[in-house]
Design a protein around this nucleic acid. Structure first.
Lengths: 339, 339
DNA sequence: CTGTTAGCGCATTCAG
DNA sequence: CTGAATGCGCTAACAG
């Protein structure tokens, strides 16, 4: 004997299928007594409710929300910022009794899952640009985070302003500035941007941050040489070390490092300290994101805190709400010992 | 006009539904020419293949695999060992063109997703014991990792032996030993086990590890006082610090700390160093799991490396293979400066 | 090689 | 309050 179905249970109890269905989905459609009886009988029979797959086919919604990561799961799960975001999404989804399907932004097809999910929360522009096209003409709900898609709701912070604020907090007249940026051009290794064309990845946060840095520098009469503007393909230790070593071994060395993530900033500080540089006397550093680890490190890092877990919750809530606006979340500049 | 369906497309092209279905699913059932024509026409019509939800209802399989975490997503995503495991699972699943649904072990119901997935990979005994009952009588494929379920395939390492090995490598005759254990009893805070009954959480790895420690100690003529056997509810800094402070401030202080995770061991070392203890001269420490961070820390940690990412891949492969055996993976004892 | 048919398990009419 | 009928979108026989 296989798993009972609504039909088999109805027959066993001598009632119609509609009655069983109503017992589970529309309590007001039958007497309390009968409902009680049906429910307990079902429990005995080992029937624990309508098949969700069939229900989903019938009703067109499944209670599963896909989160599209900008990169592979592999990379994402190991990035503290993304992890925090996911925690927030998971927490809010749990509240809504919905489920979370993690999807890689380097996959090349949404088709394999669109039919299973109620929609997409898209965290950062997916690495595979094909997905963006698919998302644009996706009939289901799509919400973006940290980037925009025409006509779709989004959740974001004002990256340009936040970057500007952070730069203004650390820069002084006469500074020699280096920027350790994230995914600015199309290259798989850490390198100076040089003359390579900036890669406009759907209004990426990185470019907004760069704009902010540059506005601050301009205001202070500083200029950023292309040789001191670095592209890092990923926010991790290895990429950051390469860049930091190259930048800091110049002479004269930069006096300020503007970093597009806290992980980058921490690695850079490690390199700087190893080279014998004193922070903040000889080198000031500012990061971006706000992760716990910066508080345990010495010196503590000045950074833009964007509370990614709250961002995740906000995203899941906005997804659910059905509202189609572009939400701007607040951030907080927190100064540490690094500036 | 809404989304095209197989039927509507068939009518539009003047062929039968079966032909369309075959064009997508069984290329050998029709001429190449016709198939080409159908596929390109479908592309024009904006039809990108059979609806997966309907397909799943019909075929009884969806290509989605659920990973049940032992705890909330929130906790899991921030634990480096779990993250690494998930990376491995994700990588292998991606190879199989399957999808990953993350599910919380503290949820109280599998019903909401069983019908959507092809089965479950269960990473550690779920915190909510109800799930275990549900998994036992689940008609779908279930594979466990780091614990066992009667009649179900599993992937594991020999925790008892690994713990024994690690203890033998650090212990010396005359040592005063403390164990910082994980989830040994039913308590939400860090505390000595004392006389509380050991919580047998479905043959948990923690108890196997404890067995291993004790075998080693017995062999060396050492005994473990109940006051030096600690229960930590979670593998994190806060829980570990509480325990480490209490244990290390005794006099005489223990000379060896056997820790059931690397995160615990690192935190304990931090506490020890802050207390002015020299490692390994005055205190030797050994961990469990093998995470990158231990290599960056000074002193580097002696630990049992169990390569969680490979474990994840092995689990996903075993899930797919259909084999029902209990797989034992190898581990590696790596000695660092802490012993 | 192609078309017809009968469900997969369910929710929703609508008539009683 | 109940039961029969219809179809959600698709696939696997089977028949041609």
């Amino acid at each position: 004997m296989s798993k009972p179905t609504l039909k088999s249970v109805a027959k066993a109890l001598g009632v119609s299928t509609a009655t069983i269905s109503n017992a589970f989905n529309r309590p007001d459609q039958l007497s309390v007594a009968l409902r009680e009886k049906i429910l307990s009988s079902c429990a005995e029979l080992g029937y624990d409710g309508p098949n969700k797959a069939a229900q989903s086919l019938r009703k067109g919604s499944s209670g599963i929300v896909a989160v599209i990561l900008s990169d592979s799961l592999e990379y994402m799960v190991s990035d503290p910022v993304a992890s925090q975001f996911l925690q927030g999404v998971a927490r809010e989804l749990e509240r809504q009794s919905k489920h979370l399907l993690l999807y890689s932004g380097s996959a090349d097809n949404l088709d394999s899952i669109t039919d299973f999910v109620d929609g997409f929360i898209c965290y950062g522009a997916p690495r595979n640009l094909k997905l963006i096209e698919q998302l644009k003409r996706c009939p289901k709900r799509v919400l973006t985070v940290d980037f925009d898609l025409p006509g779709r709701p989004s959740v974001n912070i004002d990256n340009e302003q936040a970057a500007y604020d952070s730069a203004m907090a650390v820069l002084k007249p006469g500074d020699k500035v280096a920027v350790l940026g994230l995914r600015l051009i199309d290259a798989a290794d850490s390198r100076t941007v040089g003359t390579a064309p900036l890669w406009d990845n759907q209004s990426s946060v990185s470019h907004r941050r760069l704009d902010g840095y540059q506005r601050a520098m301009q205001q202070l009469g500083l200029t950023l040489s292309n040789e001191l503007l670095w592209h890092l393909p990923e926010s991790n230790q290895a990429c950051a070390e390469t860049a930091a070593k190259a930048v800091l071994s110049q002479s004269p060395a930069p006096t300020v490092l503007l970093c597009m993530s806290d992980l980058i900033a921490l690695s850079a500080m490690r390199v700087a300290l190893a080279l014998g540089l004193r922070i903040p006397e000889q080198l000031r550093v500012v990061g971006f994101d706000g992760i716990e680890e910066t508080l345990r490190y010495h010196p503590t890092l000045s950074s833009v805190w964007q509370f990614s877990d709250q961002k995740g919750e906000a995203a899941a809530r906005a997804f659910q709400s059905g509202q189609d606006d572009n939400q701007l979340l607040s951030y907080e500049l927190r100064l540490g010992e690094s500036s």
